[in-house]
Nucleic acid binder design. Sequence first.
DNA 1: AGTCATTGTTACCTATGTTCACAATGACTT
DNA 2: AAGTCATTGTGAACATAGGTAACAATGACT
Lengths: 166, 166
Amino acid sequence: MDPRTTPAPEPAAESAAESAAAETTGRLADQLLNLTKRLHRAQRRHLEPLGITPAQSRLLRTVAHSEAPPRMADLARRLDVVPRAVTTLVDALETHDLVRRIPDPASRRVIRIELTEAGGATLHRLRLARRAAAEDLLAPLDTPQREALTALLATLDAAAPPRPRC
Amino acid sequence: MDPRTTPAPEPAAESAAESAAAETTGRLADQLLNLTKRLHRAQRRHLEPLGITPAQSRLLRTVAHSEAPPRMADLARRLDVVPRAVTTLVDALETHDLVRRIPDPASRRVIRIELTEAGGATLHRLRLARRAAAEDLLAPLDTPQREALTALLATLDAAAPPRPRC
DNA sequence: AGTCATTGTTACCTATGTTCACAATGACTT
DNA sequence: AAGTCATTGTGAACATAGGTAACAATGACT
């Protein structure tokens, strides 16, 4: 709803309905990116005293969430990153003694990642920090609104990945 | 709702309600980050043929959205980044001849950023690409759901910045 | 033994953004 | 006029998050 801000040469012959829907779509992208930037910053701010980055935090939580010590490849899949990215994160966490690389008895190729005791302790502080960070952002929403938002995002996340294997 | 995944030593004496709310909050953060990653990828995929990155795209749109050629500092503020970050982006766009640095007649310190003709043309293709990218993500949501989502995000974005001036 | 797929890693590259230092400029004081 | 200070943009260096490509070790299957 701001058609004057269209300096593109093409008159963009769209119906009003199409245009509005497109506006919404485009705006959504901006809003998401904006919000995520703030989330990143809030997380970083809260995680800084713990000495770990948001990505490391995510990895740590994923490890903790796993029933058995996961393999590097498992982590990569669950974090939706390329395996190479996991190596760096585990390196960082391992130097801080928050996780441990342990060999898999069944296959000498695989490496399993185990939470150390210090890692477990950090994880708890991390949850608090993370919650505080999210709380900073989500303050304007009341509980039902938050639930509505999670529901919508869950829909998006669920429909997400045809699991791009190649 | 998964208390067994709490390897932290502390028993975390919280009420069930508090815990559930915290769960929601934490989950929201994950969902947002997840979604944004996908959005980034989708954008990159769609923007790649145009030879510009998402951040450059955002800068370009911001320039186009401004009534008068904005100053670098304006752009930094509106993009919510540090001024130095704008320099790099403008550099890239300028080498592609999509924007131009023009001097401000009033003050020799300030540099104003102007959209070139090629920039305007690119901007239109960019809108299409961007819309397609968002469409990829938002496919699972129907129109009322999207509107609900934008409304929620708008609330968050609006309440956002006490404009951290220092 | 030979071929092929899996697993993790080393060595780079990119994108985005930050801090620090600095030079040029403008504005304001003495 | 000179001095002080804030603004503006940028160079240099670094951090974070991620990606590609090549490769070695290993397992699996013929």
